[in-house]
């Protein structure tokens, strides 16, 4: 377990304070926080809520690889990545990413890199509930 990373998949409300407190570091001058929230619409349809499922041990491994890659590419100091599992309501936090770096630029770059990679490669799935049914996102033939 890398002490510079705090990576969790949780079935309860995510805490911005916990992510911030984890990455706060006396050697760092910048922290970026990205919060992904559940919006009430997608592709013109009304969304009522989401249900997240994960292959938790593999998702943690993949997120750890992404974080490790940030240490090399962007010289990050500390990284927190929290993702929700289970039912999540509109406006709730689905994901929090916090990164600390010595200077701000690398913190912005690393934060964006992490969310982009998460969306591409990490085994987490969202089921979108609409007014008239539900479907797994990205899994329409």
């Amino acid at each position: 377990m890398n002490q510079d990373f705090d990576i969790k998949i949780i079935d309860k409300a995510l805490s911005i304070d916990n992510a911030y407190d984890f990455v706060l570091d006396s050697t760092c001058g910048g922290i970026t926080l990205f919060v992904g929230t559940v919006r009430n619409h997608n592709k013109g349809e009304t969304v009522t809520h989401l249900d997240f499922e994960s292959y938790r041990p593999m998702a943690i491994k993949e997120l750890t690889k992404i974080a490790a890659s940030c240490q090399t590419q962007f010289e990050t100091k500390k990284i927190a990545i929290y993702h929700r599992e289970g039912l999540v309501s509109i406006k709730e936090k689905a994901v929090i990413i916090a990164v600390s770096t010595i200077h701000r630029k690398q913190a912005f770059l690393a934060c964006e890199f992490i969310i982009d990679q998460l969306k591409l490669n990490v085994p987490i799935w969202k089921k979108e509930y609409l007014m008239d049914g539900s479907h797994w996102v990205n899994a329409r033939p």
Binding site: G36, F52, S54, Y55, M58, A59, H83, A94, V95, I115, L118, K119, L120, N121, V122, P123, I124, W125, K126, W136, V137, N138, A139
Partner: peptide, 9 residues
């Protein structure tokens, strides 16, 4: 494991 197209975040 079968990994369908992911959609986290």
């Amino acid at each position: 494991a079968i990994i369908p197209p992911v959609s986290g975040g």
